[in-house]
Amino acid sequence: MQCAVGHAICSSCHGSLPSKDRCHACSAGGGSNRCNALEKILESFRVPCPNAAFGCAAATSYHEAENHRGSCPHAPCFCPEPGCEAFAGDHGWPSTEMTMYGGGERLTLPVPEGTTTTRVLHHGGGGEGRPLFLVRFTTAPQFGTVVPVVCVDPHAVPGERKFRCHLVSGFPAMAWHQVSDFQVRSTNLSGGMP
């Protein structure tokens, strides 16, 4: 944007000015108008995707950069294992294949005793946009086993919930079972396992 004299200011900075009717540089009145010449120059600039280190070759204009980041197929996920920087690292975690997109089928998983184990629920053949879930069994003294379930999503936003989990834990020998129903947190695991 620019004032009648020609002093330029970007629209986000202009929006934070205490007085939008007067130029920030010369106090000229009349407000600011779009500056087509500067817009053309800025549109000609191309900025590399921040995920270039992960293989993204996209270069976008400034105003397209945020949209691209939100859908970049090269956005990374992280590994909940301390000290490991690669989600795809081979930890020997057992995995179970889900045949239906988004789940919706019942999977019976054995509960390990006395060890922390992470199990991967995935779709055969992978595929862009197919959800990946981690089920972690953690021994908690006095409580038994804690079982968080998370959806691994490189584009997750804080507080986001896209899936619901119905979890039944049972010990037939004790004629006992417990039902939990909760929304599954989506995360890119950048802060470790929730």
Partner: peptide
């Protein structure tokens, strides 16, 4: 012991309410 897990996608209406 064992657990049975069933995961389903949350469906929402146009206002974002769970349905």
């Amino acid at each position: 012991g064992s657990i049975t897990v069933s995961i389903a996608k949350i469906m929402r209406d146009t206002r974002g309410n769970e349905i």
